[in-house]
């Protein structure tokens, strides 16, 4: 029932400056609301830390995983995998839950009566997800460095940052796409977990890919979680010699993001779907 989005005139410099200002404005309040919400803090910040500590502890004591260029401690192996989980928690799970709730409780409908554009709202919300994803990445890297003696080589730091940002933006787009088909805010959390939990298990996040059967890895290779985890592992792996960019993995993650973007663009709704 929503009117078609208003067509945008050619973006002048003033309009672009105004859009940037609005995105930053929205971001300030979205981030504040995120940090104040206990559930957001637990699932996005505390839970990844908990997962890292648990998995690294379970497989501590000399266990090693075979990776490109050599072997690394299992505890070190888990750091990039759990970073992938943290990015997805921030950019996908948390975003689907909050955006669905905003739409279904009429918050987006009220914002629709104001001059603010969908681009500014989505830009501000996506920026929040990217910043939170970078934050949780920093926390997990610090834990890996302090307790498992793993540190990011300087020559792959840029690759790691780019991978986190590309992953966060792509999963934001997927988040908006998934949110557009959920008609009830209570369903958002179970649906996102039902999508992600199996993917975490087969994508090298919870279990090293080297111990999985080939057919399962083939399945995982279709989906973006595996490629995000793989790209992060390349950038984090101390045996990596080049700049650490994993072009193919990043392209596949970005392609999923682009597909999500198209779905989100076609299905975006200001009005509640559930009633």
């Amino acid at each position: 029932m929503a009117p078609a989005p208003t067509s945008s005139s050619p973006a002048s410099d003033t309009e672009r400056a105004s859009l940037t200002r609005l995105i930053l404005h929205q971001f300030r309040y979205d981030l504040r609301a995120f940090l104040r919400n206990g559930q957001s803090r637990f699932f996005t910040l505390a839970l990844p830390v908990l997962f890292l500590v648990i998995f690294a502890s379970v497989f501590s004591g000399g266990h090693q995983v075979k990776v490109a260029g050599g072997r690394i401690d299992t505890s070190v192996y888990y750091v990039p995998g759990i970073i992938a989980l943290g990015i997805i928690a921030a950019a996908f799970v948390n975003l689907v839950i909050s955006v669905t709730a905003q739409r279904e409780t009429g918050v987006l409908k009220r914002r629709r009566a104001t001059p603010v554009s969908a681009t500014a709202l989505i830009g501000g919300r996506a920026l929040t997800a990217v910043v939170v994803a970078l934050g949780i990445t920093g926390v997990l890297l610090a834990i890996g460095w302090a307790f498992y003696g793993a540190h990011v080589p300087a020559h792959t730091a840029a690759a790691l940052t780019v991978t986190v940002v590309v992953g966060a933006i792509s999963f934001c787009c997927l988040g908006y796409a998934v949110s557009s088909v959920i008609r009830n805010e209570d369903a958002a959390q179970p649906i996102t977990q039902a999508i992600m939990l199996p993917l975490y298990f087969i994508s090298g996040v919870f279990v090293a890919v080297s111990v999985l059967p080939h057919w399962l890895v083939d399945v995982a290779n279709v989906f973006p979680v595996r490629h995000l985890a793989a790209a992060l592992l390349v950038a984090y792996n101390p045996h990596t010699t080049g700049s650490g960019f994993s072009g193919t993995d990043l392209l596949i993650v970005a392609a999923w993001g682009a597909a999500g973007f198209i779905v989100a663009l076609r299905r975006f709704s200001w009005l509640p779907l559930g009633h």
């Binding site: 504040r32 995120f34 009566a113 104001t114 554009s117």
Partner: peptide, 20 residues
């Protein structure tokens, strides 16, 4: 948007912005 800047709407059923 310039038209929307001139109106104000109080809807029947809207929850407040959360956590602000």
């Amino acid at each position: 948007a310039s038209w929307r800047a001139r109106i104000g709407v109080v809807l029947q059923e809207t929850e407040p912005e959360r956590d602000l």
